[in-house]
Write a protein that binds this DNA or RNA. Structure first.
Length: 428
RNA sequence: GUGGCCGUAGCUCAGCUCGGUUAGAGCACCUGGUUGUGGUCCAGGAAGUCGCGGGUUCAAAUCCCGUCGGCCACCCCA
């Protein structure tokens, strides 16, 4: 009997590793609420056209990375390679955006690629979309969101790279310039780049294979119209006022066709994988129309959870249980069971063994499960007491059963969560 | 789609070059080291179709061919 494996490019996450994923989601969700983003749920697959049109026909993603298949009704559907197109489709379906809609999402995305470090066929993104706003203020907020998330996720030395690729008219002027530039050096270009000279010349900028040729090429930020230019200046000013460090990267264009004006990426400089970007975003004022909606300005980002976890400092070693209950004598099992039930109902994380084991083995288990404390149910139970031991300090005392909850709460790391990274900028 | 490296216990790997007695180690796991106490230490134990298929040979984890899988890089992106 052969053992089944997770499909190529997918991976299982099991305890205790999965604890980091739980934390990653909790922190993301909490931050989204703090920033005022509501949750949006969309299908994990869509009509293929949603992505073909939404993401852009000449992108790598659409050309060869889509998980597309025909369902039993003969429809062509595609597992989502990213979520922005879905969120916009959903907003249009719901009647369009009145005023503002701030949405956040979290979940698996799918791209058919050769897997490597930080690149899987099923990977996870958490993202936010600020729909209905054209202000630089909204760009700044979304950029800040990603930056704060990485801070809270303990990803060290993050560089925020920003650029502006202008509005469609700016881009048209720019494209004719760079097309001419590339045509002059046509023979030096890679095959991919040659093809893009016609279809999407700006994308040649982020081709590593053509880096040398491209180094001297004109850059999109030299062609910004006055509106895009002012917008970009305001975005940069906003980042500075929030003390968010960033660098200008004039060859940053990003691989999805729907972007205009501001684009950015988060790159941890001490991360040792080829797939260096852990998140990115941009403004996409034209996307609603492409998908058949009313013109609606918007800006959003996506954070790559898998890569953030690779880049973040590992385990904190925090307790995973508030208490482990040790049962000295099987005869008191039903008492132990009731105690555990009561503690769990008080929102404490508590567990105990389901089989008869030595006290020593149970203590070992408590340690392995990273319990903060052990409660021993033995002879003292008859007198209404338990032995309570703090596993970190090794201190042990007998306490009254009615004091247990208060005793544990005083030690719970979870209930007293410290507010991380209070880097309030100076007020002027 | 292209290239490189690697598949031996649950995990990380040694052994393979110069084929030869019961295939090893560390970690993890289980049980003990007397009375109800972990994280350290000591002793013992359980655990492997040597990825799979074929070939060469008296004999293959070891040599040859094929195949499947994994990892990393290119490409691209989260």
């Amino acid at each position: 009997m052969t053992i089944f494996r997770a499909p190529k490019g997918t991976t299982d996450v099991l305890p205790p590793d999965s604890q980091r994923w739980r934390d990653a989601y909790r922190i993301f969700d909490e931050l989204a609420e703090q920033f005022g983003y509501g949750l949006v749920l969309t299908p994990m697959f869509e009509d293929t056209e949603v992505f073909a049109r939404g993401v852009g026909g000449d992108t790598e993603v659409v050309e060869k990375q889509m998980y597309t298949f025909t369902d039993k009704g003969g429809r062509s559907v595609t597992l989502r390679p990213e979520a922005t197109a879905s969120v916009v489709r959903a907003a249009i379906q719901a009647g369009g955006v009145q005023g503002r809609l701030k949405a956040s999402y979290w979940g698996p995305m799918f791209r058919y690629e050769r897997p490597q470090k930080g690149r899987l066929r099923q990977f996870y993104q958490g993202g936010v979309e600020y729909l209905g706003s054209s202000t630089p203020e909204s760009d700044v907020e979304v950029i800040e969101f990603g930056y704060r998330y990485l801070e809270r996720m303990n990803v060290p030395d993050v560089e925020v790279r920003v650029n502006s690729i202008g509005d469609p008219a700016d881009r048209a002027r720019y494209e004719s310039e760079i097309r001419a530039f590339l045509n002059d050096r046509y023979e030096d270009l890679s095959d991919d780049a040659k093809r893009r000279v016609v279809s999407n010349p700006m994308r040649v900028l982020d081709s590593k294979a053509d880096a040398e040729v491209v180094a001297g090429a004109p850059k999109p930020d030299q062609f910004l119209g006055s509106e895009a230019s002012e917008h970009f200046a305001a975005v940069r000013e906003g980042l500075e006022s929030l003390a968010i460090p960033y660098s200008l990267d004039s060859s940053l264009v990003r691989g999805l066709d729907y972007y205009n004006r501001t684009v950015w990426e988060y790159v941890p400089t001490r991360y040792d994988a080829a797939q260096s970007s852990v998140g990115g975003g941009g403004r996409y004022d034209g996307l609603f129309e492409v998908l058949g909606g009313k013109p609606t300005p918007a800006v959003g980002l996506a954070m790559g959870v898998d890569r953030i976890l690779l880049a973040s400092r590992g385990e904190t070693g925090e307790p995973l249980l508030d208490a482990y209950v040790v049962l000295v004598d099987e005869s008191r099992r039903s008492d132990a069971r009731r105690l555990v039930s009561e503690l769990r109902n008080a929102s404490l994380r508590v567990d105990l063994t389901d089989v008869t084991r030595s006290v020593k083995a149970q203590f070992k288990e408590a340690d392995r499960r990273r319990a903060a404390a052990v409660l021993v149910i033995g002879d003292e139970w008859a007198a209404g007491r338990v032995a309570a031991k703090d596993l970190a300090s090794g201190e042990q005392s007998e306490i009254e059963t009615k004091e247990i909850i208060a005793w544990l709460q005083a030690r719970s790391s979870r209930l007293v969560r410290e507010s991380s990274g209070s880097s309030m900028p100076e007020t002027r």
